[in-house]
């Protein structure tokens, strides 16, 4: 990135610069036909995330977000709840990676709010939103109920989250409504993504809806099972069943 900063200058200078002859850039590739050198970088091998330790969240944050997640996807006769399914581990690893730092977003200024249709303009990252949002969650419930969020009754928890979702409960450091949207998005992802990301334990989310998982060929079923129930044990990319 350091070199990129120099580019503005470079572009202006271009017209007058002396051009060096051929220079071989480091990872831009010059692939010449017939040379056989055109191969992509093999992707790194797949591995399951390490659930034994936290990589972004603190212990307290992990516990708190687990409490919220279990209200969003509770344990019941249809399957385990979000925390047991590994959704907190999932989230922790996501926040430590490019998703957490919003690495793909455009973050240059000026940062101003526009019309709703112009879309989100905030450059806060998910990692920052969780850090601030989780801290404030307990502060707000303490003010309202004199209790931390995990100590509320189930009904109170539900009502509180409904308030965040509807925008009737507001936070000071983050938009409570946006934080709620992120929580709901991430808990669903954790429950339904491939188990190698740390959630969807025993493919509980896939079993809930009858999704076969990492299957790449349905030619046998596209006609023979058309409109019919398919009983199948899902598979993960790691081939665990």
């Amino acid at each position: 990135m350091r070199r990129r900063d120099a580019l503005k200058v470079g572009l202006v200078l271009l017209a007058t610069s002396t051009l060096a002859s051929i220079y071989k850039p480091a990872y831009s590739k010059t692939l010449v036909g017939g040379s056989g050198a055109w191969k992509a970088q093999p992707p790194p091998p797949l591995s399951v995330v390490d659930s034994s330790r936290l990589v972004y969240l603190t212990q307290d944050e992990a516990k708190l977000v687990g409490t919220v997640f279990d209200v969003l996807i509770p344990p019941d006769e249809l399957g385990m709840g979000a925390t047991e399914a590994g959704c907190v581990t999932f989230l922790d690893h996501q926040l430590a990676g490019p998703f957490g730092s919003a690495a793909k977003d455009y973050k240059m200024g000026p940062v101003v709010e526009g019309t709703p249709q112009q879309g989100p303009q905030s450059i806060a990252t998910p990692a920052e939103i969780y850090r601030k949002g989780l801290a404030e969650l307990n502060t707000v419930t303490r003010k309202k109920f004199d209790k931390a969020f995990p100590d509320l009754t189930e009904d109170q928890k539900v009502a509180f989250l409904e308030g965040m979702e509807a925008g009737t409960i507001q936070f000071e450091t983050v938009k409570a409504k946006d934080f709620f949207t992120l929580l709901l998005q991430n808990v669903r992802e954790g429950y339904l993504a491939d188990p190698m990301y740390g959630g969807n334990r025993d493919m509980v989310g896939w079993k809930l809806v009858g999704f076969p998982g990492a299957v790449y060929d349905y030619r046998d079923w596209i006609v023979s099972k058309r409109g019919q129930k398919i009983d199948v044990q899902p598979v993960s990319l790691l081939r665990t069943t």
């Binding site: 850039p25 831009s28 590739k29 692939l31 036909g33 017939g34």
Partner: peptide
């Protein structure tokens, strides 16, 4: 990519 009169410069 078999043709020697073709070159692609990627990531540029």
């Amino acid at each position: 990519m078999q043709r020697p009169n073709f070159t692609v410069v990627t990531e540029s």
